[in-house]
Design a protein around this nucleic acid. Structure first.
Lengths: 336, 336
DNA sequence: TTTATACGCTTAATCGTTTAACTATAAAGT
DNA sequence: ACTTTATAGTTAAACGATTAAGCGTATAAA
């Protein structure tokens, strides 16, 4: 079963490959192919189950209609959902998506950028790692279409779509204060990434505004030792003298493990203490009471990421837009 | 910034592209290139940041070092994890993975097969849709490397890696019986797919063996109307006269929604009734008591899927193996 | 001296598509 | 009759990499 190419169609029909190509790309008008021949070609193509070879086309055209998506971890629901929406929209524009993982490793980010480059992706959508800026910068400097998502490096002007982490975070903390919390803990990753810094800043500013700031209440967790760190952090936070009455979890994984630890320690939510989380976790559905959380508009983010990228692909040296979306607080007993 | 190709290196160094290609592919021995020239080429390549163009290579070699992965829904944790492990192993063999979704639509399966074929993927790993057999069959007939995963069509000899759904299911049900359950409900998708049929058969056989079978206790849910169907199914199952004391949920999504409904109805697990689920859900971590579930060896499945596919790619007309893995029951108070 | 062979590199075809430039014919305009 | 214009195609180069076959030159063998 030999591959059926434009050439085989051309031979069978006794025309040139150019004609076949013209017709199959709907350029018969400019290419001026007669209706008869065009119809014959289209029929034969269907009959022979012709499928264009995108490698060849990509080679010739200098583009592959493929987007490279680099996320931290596809098995994390947040990224999986993001990937889903990115794919759905990419498809609309005729793009396929190659997804790769970094597992938060800078080395892997570099490797993946190279792998995807050699596959001639037309552009990148990247959730960068903590120290991944240099690799992203290289792409930007070479005018390779690149959109950062979830996390941004303000210093380099790549395109980006992120949420307003600062205000989202502040909103979350204020909702706790409005519920009467005074001693509010923060469980967050130790990270230099802007989105984490912003979430922390949002927490600190909101809480300082009300005069409740206590640096001891900020617990920074190492990504790689999270399972060990969380129980320790929560336990030290919940020491009697701290009188903790609220906790803000800065990511969904932190929430998951944190709340689990609270349950292990027999703390009731919200009677003993109140919580609010960044991002939803499937698990929230199971809680007796609804867990308030910051909702990031994932479908929106996916859509915009693709749109920004497609714009850049059309005009690689054009301006690179950064879009900041507002996140909302859901399930909170206090409004706004 | 023009792309750096083998040609540009050759021109700068005043040698032919053939020599450069030979060296860069480590074929200097057979190609008999002098150490001097080889070293010069390697240096220059690094200096110019040469990255091979995989489109061109793929076109020439007739293979793209790319695997097409088609899953039902990448935002479902089960598939996201599966995709993760498939990727990790594919990478080891030098393959990239293009992931696409069907959302359980047969039409989309057909479309995705064509999209991936035109991208010249070297093989497919597919989680097929309910009526997707014809499309898979076409691939198999054309000797296109194909491995089914999670779900199999026994009728066509594609490669496959699945769990022993029948015994896993029976194991789950028997654990309920051993805990004293007599009236055990089954919440399952209405589907002709073999894995669903096997799970149902496992349930029926195990329960019939003990003389407790009652067809009314089997509730089949439509995938597309799941949010409506689940509460109705659970409510009708829990009618007083049924004296239901156990429920077996046949997938993770069914478990999630089903347990949520049980909680809405204030049924305590395991006091009021016991449950056992197929697949883990993140949410289980949040439950007061551990939820027993059937654990599918996902890392194994991913690894084997890739290995089977790579074998097929090496020998497309060779025998296509089907691997059946045993799933285990975890968190159950009764052993085995 | 002649012939074989090893060495070191080049030539050129090829993969499947696209597309600018060209050709050939007919019809229309002057 | 001659030029222009429209029609309906074809030719051939190009994208970047691979690789079988070829070709001088030098050395070794006969």
């Amino acid at each position: 079963m030999a591959r059926v190419s434009i050439k085989s169609i051309a031979e069978v029909l006794g025309v040139s490959t150019a004609t076949v190509s013209l017709v199959l790309n709907g350029k018969e008008k400019e290419g001026r192919v007669s209706k008869d021949v065009a119809e014959k070609i289209r029929l034969k193509a269907k009959e022979m189950h012709y499928e264009p070879n995108n490698l060849a086309r990509g080679l010739r055209m200098g583009c592959s209609q493929t987007i490279g998506l680099i996320v931290a971890d596809i098995s994390n629901l947040f990224f999986a959902n993001l990937a889903f929406h990115i794919q759905e929209h990419a498809e609309k524009y005729g793009y396929s998506v190659i997804i790769t993982n970094t597992n938060e490793s800078d080395l892997k980010l570099e490797k993946m950028v190279n792998v995807l480059k050699s596959r001639q992706v037309d552009g990148f959508i990247i959730v960068p790692t903590e120290h991944g800026m240099p690799y992203v910068e290289t792409l930007v400097k070479r005018n390779i279409p690149t959109v950062l998502v979830d996390r941004n490096f303000a210093e380099i002007k790549a395109g980006a779509v992120v949420v307003d982490n600062y205000h989202a975070s502040a909103k979350a903390v204020k909702s706790l204060i409005r519920q009467g919390c005074r001693n509010i803990g923060l469980i967050i990753y130790k990270s230099r990434l802007q989105h984490m810094r912003e979430r922390k800043r949002g927490y600190i500013d909101a809480i300082t505004e009300h005069g409740f700031y206590n640096p001891d209440f900020v617990k920074e967790i190492n990504y790689s030792t999270i399972s060990n760190d969380i129980p320790i952090a929560i336990e030290s936070l919940l020491l009697k003298e701290n009188r903790i009455d609220g906790i803000f979890f800065a990511t969904n994984t932190l929430s998951m493990l944190g709340i689990k630890q609270l349950m292990n320690m027999n703390r009731r939510i919200p009677e003993d203490l109140k919580v609010v989380c960044f991002d939803k976790s499937d698990a929230f559905d199971f809680m007796d009471i609804p867990i308030p959380y910051i909702f990031q508009p994932l479908p929106e983010m996916g859509r915009i990421a693709v749109e920004l990228l497609v714009e850049q692909i059309k005009e690689p040296s054009g301006e690179r837009k950064c879009v900041e979306l507002q996140a909302s607080l859901v399930n909170s007993p206090v409004n706004n």
